[in-house]
């Protein structure tokens, strides 16, 4: 069944993922506002959980600030603690 094997002329660039960067250091953002819910939505998945650094690429210092901001936003009812379809 040689026909099934497809030979690419050049290697398929599938896993060439672009370099992740910390958006806070790049844009020079110094303070993450816990009151701004729709900004924090970018850092939680659709169950309302905080996204890990390996996905968002943020540095450790700002990941802690993001986590704290999300927890504060949850406390004052801007973000849910757990939900099934947030976005």
């Amino acid at each position: 069944m040689a026909k099934d094997t497809i030979q690419y002329v050049t290697a398929p660039k599938v896993d060439e993922s672009r370099k992740k960067y910390c958006r806070f250091r790049k844009n020079g953002i110094k303070y993450i506002d816990y009151k701004d819910a729709n900004f924090l939505l970018k850092f939680i998945n659709d169950q309302g959980k905080v996204l890990p650094r390996r996905l968002t690429g943020t540095s450790l210092k700002f990941q802690r600030k993001v986590a704290q901001a999300v927890k504060r936003a949850r406390h004052i009812g801007l973000l849910p603690y757990v939900t099934d379809s947030l976005k």
């Binding site: 844009n27 020079g28 953002i29 110094k30 303070y31 506002d33 701004d36 900004f39």
Partner: peptide, 20 residues
Amino acid sequence: FSEKKRSGAFNKKQETKIEE
């Protein structure tokens, strides 16, 4: 941040995207 927010520095663009 809160001074800038109050002075409306963010109003023209989404506040998190500006270059500080």
